[in-house]
Simulated scan of single mutants.
Amino acid sequence: MTATPRITGRHALVSGGGSGVGRAIALALAGAGVNVTICGRREAALAEVASENDHIFGIVADVTDEADMIALHEKAEAARGPIDIVVANAGLSGSAPAHKTALVDWRHTIDVNLTGAFLTVKPALAGMAARKAGRIVFVASTAGLKGYAYVAPYVAAKHGVVGLMRALAVETAKSGITVNAVCPGFVETDMLEESVQRIVEKTGRSTGEARESLAAINPQGRFIQPEEVAEAVLWLCGDAARSITGQTISISGGETW
């Protein structure tokens, strides 16, 4: 995965590109000469990432709003041409025992992580099929491959993302499109810090103890770095991965496979 894929000049859309894994993916693609449209709900965060590379452009959009996502695709394509790559990355997580999970929280988690992934990809499918080329990568999670306690909505949503990926991979296999998912374990991002703080608040552990308990889930005893996820996505977008479709790539130090 160290060789730069031959993707210079292509156009990618990365949802949730204003921070964390999405930011790392946008920067990796832009570094390979890809024109990258990033979207999210925080204009300032998008602008900050865009300032890091001239190939990156930010557009405010809500992945749970179908009209918003259609407009995003139209605006991005009008400015920079057809979208060749879609990375559905936007997501969120909360924590509560299943019997204490409010329906509104369940629905919001499913809307952002699963429905949002679908709406991010849907507007690009017809154009990719007509051009007989395209790369779709879902940023799922090890929570799409196994269960975790106290995050039932998130686990359900990420399992749904993996199922969506597999369905689209079968549907598009003859059209020149590849569809895959990367499934990271705990990644060192703001979302991880939120998880750490929830553990501190609910258990009374120190921040260090909470971090150690999460890092220990990875057999390598460490947190995944956003750039590691970005490198896997970059490879999947290149010509060397043209035969890879319908796959889940676990980036977890051996936690899942």
Rank of each mutant, 00 (worst) to 15 (best):
K122D: 03
F118N: 06
L72T: 03
A124Y: 11
G81L: 06
P97S: 07
A79G: 03
E74P: 02
P97V: 07
L125G: 03
N89H: 03
I83G: 02
G91R: 03
L114I: 10
I83P: 02
E74S: 11
T120G: 02
A129P: 05
V121Y: 05
G127L: 13
A71G: 05
L114G: 08
V121S: 03
G81M: 07
R107W: 06
P97E: 03
A117M: 03
D62H: 10
L125K: 03
I85W: 01
T101S: 11
I85N: 02
L103S: 10
V86G: 00
A78G: 15
H73D: 09
A90P: 04
A102D: 13
I110L: 15
A126D: 15
D84S: 07
T120M: 03
R131Q: 10
A117K: 07
E66H: 09
D65Y: 06
K122S: 06
K122P: 04
D105C: 08
A78V: 02
K75F: 00
A78H: 08
K122C: 06
F118D: 04
A67K: 13
A79E: 05
D105Y: 06
K122E: 09
V63T: 14
V63W: 11
E66S: 05
L103G: 05
R80G: 08
I70G: 02
A88S: 01
D68M: 06
G127R: 14
V86M: 01
L114R: 10
A76K: 01
D84L: 06
N113C: 09
M128E: 08
V104H: 02
V87A: 02
A78I: 00
S95A: 14
I85F: 03
H99S: 13
K122H: 11
I70F: 09
E74F: 04
L119D: 05
T64G: 12
D105A: 15
R80K: 05
P123D: 05
G81S: 05
D111N: 14
I110S: 13
A130E: 09
H99L: 15
A96M: 12
H73I: 03
M69D: 07
A67H: 13
A90S: 06
L125T: 00
L72Y: 05
V104W: 00
A126C: 04
L72P: 07
L103R: 15
G127W: 14
R80M: 08
N113D: 14
A88G: 00
T109H: 12
A67T: 12
R80H: 14
G81N: 02
T101W: 09
